[in-house]
Computed example of a mutant assay.
Amino acid sequence: MAWDAVVIGGGQAGLTAARELTRRGLSSTLLEKEATTSGSWRGYYDSLTLFTPAHLNSLGGEPFPGSPHRYPSGIEVAEYLEAYAESLSAEVRTGFTVDRVSRQREHYLIHGSDGETVVSRAVISATGGFTNPYRPHIAALDRFTGEVIHAADYRSPERFRDKSVVVVGAGDSAVQIAVELREHTKVILVSRHPIHYATSTPIPPNSRFWSWLARAGRLPIGRWFGHTPIPVVDTQGYKQMIDGCAPERREMPFGARECVLLWADGREDRVDTVILATGYRPSLGHLSSLEQFDSQGFPLHRSGLSRRHRGLAYVGLEYQRTMLSGTLHGANQDAAYVARRIARTLE
Rank of each mutant, 00 (worst) to 15 (best):
E158M: 03
Y238P: 04
S303E: 14
P247N: 06
R93H: 10
C259H: 15
A216Q: 14
P220I: 07
Y197D: 04
T345L: 07
G11H: 02
A246K: 05
P53G: 03
E62T: 13
D334I: 04
Q296D: 12
R19T: 03
R161M: 11
T117F: 01
E147V: 10
T201Q: 12
R103A: 09
P194S: 10
F225P: 09
S40E: 10
L59H: 09
F96K: 12
W3V: 01
W41L: 07
S113K: 10
D142P: 03
E147G: 02
T278K: 05
T131N: 14
S289K: 13
S113C: 10
F293T: 05
F293P: 01
T22G: 11
V232T: 10
H184R: 09
E318W: 11
G217K: 04
R23I: 06
L141W: 06
L59I: 05
N332A: 10
A85H: 04
F96E: 11
G244V: 00
A174P: 02
G129I: 03
Q292P: 03
S27L: 01
Y84A: 11
R161Y: 12
A152E: 04
V260L: 09
V123N: 04
H69G: 02
S288C: 05
Q296C: 08
G146R: 03
I342V: 11
R307V: 09
